[in-house]
Design a protein around this nucleic acid. Structure first.
Lengths: 154, 154
DNA sequence: CACTGTCAATCAGTTTTACTGACGATTTTG
DNA sequence: CAAAATCGTCAGTAAAACTGATTGACAGTG
């Protein structure tokens, strides 16, 4: 898994009024919990990410998936290999560009997401975000969406 | 550095109203930019994390630092080795428990933080958080602080 | 005080993981 | 059409992290 084994403590306490550090702390915690929740299904955070992206965006090339997850193209080869062997995704050919695959979710992949993975990860998010009221949560989501938005200079 | 080389795109667009995913996206971007900014000083994100923690919390054992960063104790050995060789931290002995080190910042470490690293990372945070108004930024910080707070069940 | 169990740091060895550079096939550009 | 760029792949390499064992220190037991 991650590293330590035990529950992580925040990296900053006093200082660090900086939202950046807090962001890192919270994200690290979410990632650790997510990895733990997914371990039973022999999936890593990144595998789940691939499935979620395909679910929301439809068929994509391996590189495009990797770009969205900040994963190298050569690494994506093996990631998709495994998911394909487990029948969760399929490598179709992109008609417009025969160099690229059009990786897409299979029915089994879609079903696993709906019946197992989403409930699992929703629970994790609930654990972490549970301290906020629904209104606060909406506010947080809105602010983060602004930050995650497109093209922030270069 | 991270992986891809180029600018990362958000992992989720449509779906994913879930704050958890957005959090991951934004944190990933901050991390990538931070790594890039620190590369000139031959430091990784984690090294900077060690220095920041020591600056704000005072001398700590290697394990405690690792726990706060979710880094394994055996990995911390080498991390501190390098920082010590560069004269940024010093391994003192913990008087109360002579099994543990009391790792602390040196003057050089403190100076590097103040004169180089903090300005560098502040700039990164500014790039990413720049889309928010000061008021929104305060709100975000407050919400994240609640999430990063102590003891969220087990 | 000898004895047992625990814990911090370390180290050697192993495993995992990620990147590099090159390649064929294909597309795009000039 | 020739040249440059792109997608996926793979072999080799480099780096990073974990495992288990060891040493010295601490805490509690009888």
């Amino acid at each position: 898994m991650g590293a330590n084994g035990r529950e992580p403590a925040p990296a900053t306490r006093l200082l660090a009024g900086s939202a950046g550090w807090l962001l890192g702390d919270v994200a690290r915690e979410v990632t650790l919990r997510l990895e733990e929740a997914l371990r039973g299904d022999e999936l890593r955070w990144r595998d789940y990410g691939v499935l979620v992206i395909l679910e929301s965006a439809g068929p994509l090339s391996q590189q495009e998936i990797g770009r969205r997850l900040a994963v190298d193209r050569s690494t994506m080869v093996h990631v998709i290999d495994v998911l394909e062997q487990r029948g969760l995704v399929a490598r179709g050919r992109d008609r417009a560009d025969r160099r690229a695959y059009a990786v897409e979710l299979t029915g089994a992949g879609r079903a696993l997401l709906a019946e197992v993975l989403h409930p699992l990860t929703d629970a994790v998010h609930e654990q972490v975000l549970g301290r906020l009221t629904p209104g606060e949560r909406r506010t947080l989501t809105r602010l983060l969406a602004r930050l995650a938005g497109p093209a922030r200079d270069a």
